[in-house]
Write a protein that binds this DNA or RNA. Structure first.
Lengths: 161, 161
DNA sequence: TATTGTTATACTCTATAACTATA
DNA sequence: TATAGTTATAGAGTATAACAATA
């Protein structure tokens, strides 16, 4: 079976299933009161306490102005705080609060639930095989295991791959 | 290796790799002057000539008003046309023009290029294995092989899966 | 003069609601 | 009265550019 005989190919299927997984995760973060983007920032700050906004922007491949509004929202919901660096007063060091840590625990539970939903229909061997292949692709692409895109796009149509 | 020991899991990896694939495809459609959404509509109309806008909205899981603007753009770039149904003058039957068919051929080439990029680093056996597993997941989810989401979102940060 | 962060603003994509025309 | 499509409008998410504070 050559690639062109296939009803849909790896690129297409990855796009389709990735969007599906993203939507299911988004539904769960929204129930917890967060957008996927906010959840992602919280996760990174939890793993790298003291990271500043510029570093966060680089990690997320976005601009500082966007980080401002994301951190604003986390701060106003009490999940994270900004602390002025004592060594460089331009810099804001970011930290997760106790409430933020509680939220991270809830997000981890949600991710566990999502995992079983996403893999439903595959037996343990298939899951292991799929996991291994995807992890290899991710490594080949040089993707950061801490960062994944939060499609802000709950019901976005098409593309023909 | 239990799920919770994993550095990143299937749901997370699918989301990450799916976004990556979507972005690479989007870059290609943009070069051809189309958004992923426009490309997707063109593809569907090419496969189902005469489909009307309501049917298209259902297929894309979106609203009719959105279909209007998508079809508007395809029509004004000469890739598709609306034809009033003779049996129900409320209904607009959609058709691809010659220029639209030429564009579809270019999109197919782009998809071929994307496919080799996305699967780069895997040998033929691995690709076949991955393809089989993804196709099974897609079938289990009941996803439509004609429709996949066009993330309109070129550089969207995070979510913690 | 360069860098960190902020504000103001604008653009894209998408949905909701009111409307027109046909049935 | 219901349906296919359209228009007008609003919202979310994101980026760009000008600005303030600090280095």
């Amino acid at each position: 079976m050559s690639p062109s005989d296939r009803p849909a190919r790896i690129g297409f299927l990855l796009t389709q299933l990735g969007a599906h997984a993203a939507k299911s995760f988004e539904a769960k973060t929204r129930e917890l009161g967060l957008s996927p983007a906010q959840a992602g920032v919280l996760r990174i700050v939890g793993r790298q306490p003291g990271i500043n906004q510029r570093e966060l922007a680089v990690k997320l491949s976005t601009v500082q102005s966007r980080v401002v509004s994301l951190v604003d929202s986390l701060e106003s919901s009490g999940l994270a705080v900004r602390v002025r660096s004592t060594t460089d007063r331009r810099s804001q060091e970011l930290h997760v609060t106790d409430a933020g840590r509680a939220m991270l625990a809830r997000l981890r539970s949600a991710a566990e639930v999502q995992e079983s939903e996403v893999a439903a229909g595959l037996d343990a061997d298939d899951r292991e095989q799929l996991y291994t292949l995807l992890l290899r692709l991710s490594a080949i692409r040089g993707l950061d295991a801490d960062v994944h895109p939060g499609y802000s796009d709950p019901a976005a149509p098409q593309a023909g791959g």
